[in-house]
């Protein structure tokens, strides 16, 4: 049987989908890591990005962090984190936390860059008018800069999420769940259908989540920022 057929067979076998280790259960686990990581990354990167964009201070951080983090190998970080945390934590957490740290590290740069760029791209005239009308610094940020930055903040989050979902397979390496299980277990048992099928499911999941986030983006971005040109 060729690879395509093997993959198809695995994907269409109801047994692959159900049960504790099935595709559905692993997808849920995968999504849980992914959203946790995105949330944690956003909690760090969005405030920092807003601050850098609003004050213009620490710009080098926003610019260089992205490049620096990209150069660090995910697997290396994972093993170092496990080695450091294993003696200190007990149970699943000792493995889960290192995996999350890797994902968060990966997600911070795109969210930070998007947020910073979005705030920084605020029309200087709009910012000047806002101050001139009597907005305080935080009002300018809240009422003018953040709403204007929403398109770029959202694309930062979406880019980060795509990376997270792809990389979350890494959790399986340290014995955790998620769709990475199919890649690791498939390789161990030379079940190439399962490996390839697992990869296909990861891609589909990433696509579905991105579509969902695109819908959120439409909700939170003002139509004034997407409609262009006079008239209509």
């Amino acid at each position: 049987m060729n690879a395509l057929a093997l993959t198809w067979e695995w994907l269409t076998d109801p047994a692959s989908w159900t049960g504790a280790g099935g595709i559905l259960a692993q997808s849920v686990a995968h999504l849980r890591y992914s959203f946790l990581a995105l949330l944690a990354a956003a909690l760090v990167a969005v405030p920092v990005g807003l601050w850098v964009g609003h004050t213009g201070r620490g710009r080098w951080l926003a610019v260089n962090a992205a490049g620096a983090v990209r150069a660090v190998p995910s697997l290396g970080v994972l093993f170092i984190a496990v080695l450091l945390l294993l003696p200190r934590l007990r149970g699943e957490l000792a493995f889960e936390l290192p995996a999350l740290i890797v994902l968060v590290l990966l997600a911070v740069p795109p969210v930070l860059a998007g947020t910073y760029a979005g705030v920084q791209a605020t029309d200087p005239a709009a910012r000047d008018a806002a101050r001139g009308m009597g907005m305080t610094g935080t009002q300018v940020l809240r009422l003018v800069e953040i709403p204007g930055a929403m398109p770029l903040i959202m694309s930062g989050l979406r880019a980060a999420m795509l990376q997270i979902i792809g990389t979350a397979t890494i959790a399986a390496i340290v014995g955790l769940g998620g769709l990475g299980r199919f890649l690791i277990d498939g390789q161990a048992s030379r079940d190439y259908g399962q490996m390839a099928g697992g990869a296909v499911v990861v891609a589909l999941l990433a696509l579905a989540v991105d579509i969902a986030l695109a819908a959120v983006q439409r909700l939170v971005v003002s139509p004034g920022l997407t409609t262009a040109g006079p008239g209509r």
């Binding site: 029309d123 005239a125 709009a126 910012r127 000047d128 008018a129 806002a130 101050r131 001139g132 009308m133 009597g134 907005m135 305080t136 009422l143 003018v144 709403p147 204007g148 929403m150 003002s222 004034g224 920022l225």
Partner: peptide
Amino acid sequence: AQLRRSIGYVIQQAGLFPHR
């Protein structure tokens, strides 16, 4: 801020808020 709220301010590029 309070002073500015009591004085109208118009600039060359209008400086409208694009999202509103």
